[in-house]
């Protein structure tokens, strides 16, 4: 088990290093961002001074090493526009994005897994047909389009939920959260629902497929031969077999949601990291973009690492296999 975790940790660090390189190189190709911020008709020495202040006159590899040592100190540069540390901007916005993603994940799991279990157990039932239709629609409808529909129906036409914004927040362990008040929950619901549709469909389809597969397994027949009630077979024998793959996929999806929240945050004016980076891309605020991408990749990879470890705990055969190979 220890060896298994160590190996995954090594891969994780390697991935982060490669990503820092990729992100840096990709953005170095962006060209000179200074002209976006100062008047192009400024005298040449003013431009030169601005470039020098930002360290952009150094060779690329020196910039990269300064960038790496900055990362080591938790310094990803200052925003070109606000002058504040980029990482700080991101961390300020992070609770909003986390709250949104976790809310979406909660909805997706609570709705998706039971429906998938039902659809897998009785494919021709009403639930089975619903899951089939829902999964075709969910791959066909882009998130932003569904978000617009939600706003039209639930905010503009009926006014049940607000159309955007985060609403009132309260401090919880130093983070601003909105799920603690009813008004905050009302603001959270539509964006979270919007973001949850993709992982929900995924959870449904995956659960359904693995339940169908599990039901054909010999151990389910054996559990029936032991006279176990169907409820027990489904909720323990089948679910226990389905869970590791489900945790894997849902965990990876949670990482993906942090990135996907870009769309939902833009539609619902949700003040999270996604909205921040879209604004930064539009004005080429390079440190903020780099900080966001690295941070997202970091979180994404951390979650994947945790998922692997949880899976090894859930399925005792995995760590054994990992150690043997």
């Amino acid at each position: 088990m220890g060896w298994f975790i160590a190996r995954r940790l090594g891969q994780f660090l390697l991935l982060l290093f490669v990503m820092s390189l990729v992100v840096f190189v990709a953005l170095f190709a962006l060209g000179n961002p200074v002209l976006n911020f100062i008047n192009p008709s400024s005298p040449p020495d003013v431009v030169r001074q601005a470039i020098h202040n930002l360290g952009l006159d150094q060779p690329a590899y020196i910039q990269y090493f300064r960038f790496l040592s900055g990362i080591a100190h938790g310094d990803l540069g200052n925003s070109y526009t606000s002058g504040r540390p980029a990482l700080r901007l991101i961390l300020e916005r992070l609770p909003a994005t986390l709250e949104l993603s976790l809310g979406a994940m909660l909805i997706a799991t609570l709705v998706g897994i039971p429906l998938g279990l039902g659809a897998g157990y009785r494919p021709n039932s009403l639930v089975g047909r619903f899951v089939e239709g829902f999964s075709l629609l969910s791959v066909s409808l882009p998130t932003f389009w569904i978000g617009l529909m939600l706003i039209i129906v639930f905010a503009i036409e009926t006014g049940i939920f607000p159309a955007g914004g985060r609403g009132p927040t309260t401090d919880l362990l130093g983070m601003k959260v909105s799920f603690t008040s009813l008004e905050g929950l009302r603001h959270l619901f539509l964006p979270a629902l919007n973001l949850s549709l993709f992982p929900m469909a995924l959870a449904m389809r995956l659960t359904r497929a693995s339940v169908e597969e599990s039901l054909r397994m010999n151990f389910v027949r054996y559990a029936r031969a032991k006279g176990l009630p169907p409820r027990r077979i489904l909720s323990v024998y089948v679910l226990k077999n389905v869970l590791p793959s489900l945790v894997t996929v849902m965990g990876m999806v949670l990482g993906g949601l942090l990135a996907f929240s870009v769309i939902t945050e833009s539609i619902f004016a949700w003040p999270g990291t996604g909205k921040l980076v879209i604004d930064a891309i539009q004005i080429s605020d390079r440190p903020v973009i780099i900080a966001y991408l690295l941070f997202t990749v970091f979180i994404f990879s951390t979650i994947n690492l945790l998922v692997d470890i949880v899976c090894a705990v859930l399925d005792p055969r995995i760590s054994l296999r990992g150690a043997a190979s």
């Binding site: 027949r221 024998y237 590791p244």
Partner: peptide
């Protein structure tokens, strides 16, 4: 089933649940 009549399958590897402890599978029965 499992009370008055029980069955032993040919392949115990696939009959036993791979990720449940033996004790749990017996206690369930």
């Amino acid at each position: 089933r499992g009370d008055r009549v029980s069955i032993i399958f040919q392949d115990p590897m696939t009959a036993l649940h791979p990720t449940l402890r033996i004790g749990q599978q017996m206690i369930d029965a």
